[in-house]
């Protein structure tokens, strides 16, 4: 199966690991990621204000490209996924907004949210199946791993619809499939401080500490995330255990550790 792949700006720079491993593993698991041409940055966060059009156009263009290509759109980065999902939802449900966007783009092909949007994890769970992933594992992880969802991957729950936002299981299921032992901790769906790290690093430090201490207390030997900013915040603010992208873990289990 083919997916139009939206890597996002961070995956081309600071989060290359998130990107490279995702591509490698897709090949092994039997699905194809076709990188979207000339993608533009999603903006990192969705502006909830209904009167903002310009900040959402880049994502609408990506969604339209997927529609034109007849493929679902897939993302790996939590932030991109959140923005794309929320924008698509606005195009589906807010007629005034959709009309304005369509009239502005005015390319003869009106868009109303037809594109199906997947997070890479959803592809693994809903299309490939974690059983298949498990079959492909060569190097079981055999360690205690705490999944860190943060906020962007789950909320708003009624829009993102990836999992139960209060009791998500998708990453725990992946960890299990890869031979690891998932460690659930209370703060796995709370915020790490996010972009506030830019303007108020002290506050971000407090938030990040709450998260990794919660994971460590619960017995995690590693934290795994899908968000470059979560990873940055946790590492920068003193996590005592490694913080990895889920794709790194996937690759480690399927392909093995690289030199």
């Amino acid at each position: 199966m083919k997916f139009l792949y939206y890597p996002g700006c961070t995956l081309k720079n600071k989060a290359k690991a998130l990107d490279i491993y995702a591509r490698e593993c897709a090949e092994i698991l039997g699905f194809e990621l076709v990188e979207i041409n000339d993608f533009q940055c999603c903006g990192g966060v969705f502006t909830t204000s209904a009167d903002e059009i310009a900040t959402k156009l880049a994502v609408v263009r990506a969604l339209k490209a997927a529609k034109a290509a007849g493929m679902p759109l897939v993302t790996v980065c939590s932030a991109c996924h959140n923005v794309i999902k929320q924008t698509n939802h606005a195009m589906q449900t807010d007629a005034v907004f959709a009309d304005r966007v369509n009239r502005y783009l005015n390319d003869g092909d009106d868009y109303h949210g037809e594109t199906k949007v997947y997070h890479y994890l959803e592809v693994l769970r809903d299309i490939i199946g974690f059983d298949k992933v498990k079959e492909c594992v060569k190097y079981p992880l055999n360690m205690n791993i705490g999944a860190y969802y943060g906020c962007l991957m789950l909320r708003p729950g009624s829009v993102i619809e990836m999992d139960d936002a209060e009791n998500p299981q998708i990453m725990e299921q992946l960890i299990k499939a890869l031979g690891g032992r998932p460690v659930e901790y209370g703060n796995r769906n709370e915020c790490c401080g996010g972009y506030v790290t830019v303007t108020d690093p002290g506050f971000a430090r407090k938030r990040s500490r709450i998260i990794y201490e919660s994971a460590e207390t619960a017995g995690a030997e590693m934290i795994v995330t899908a968000c470059p900013l979560c990873r940055y915040n946790l590492i920068k603010n003193g996590a005592d255990i490694p913080v990895k992208y889920f794709t790194e873990l996937l690759s480690k289990a399927l392909i093995g550790e690289k030199e």
Binding site: Y185, G186, N187, E190, S214, T217, A218
Partner: peptide, 11 residues
């Protein structure tokens, strides 16, 4: 608003 089970406490 939120309860976390941590150790033998409920935060």
């Amino acid at each position: 608003g939120k309860i976390c089970a941590e150790g033998d406490k409920l935060k």
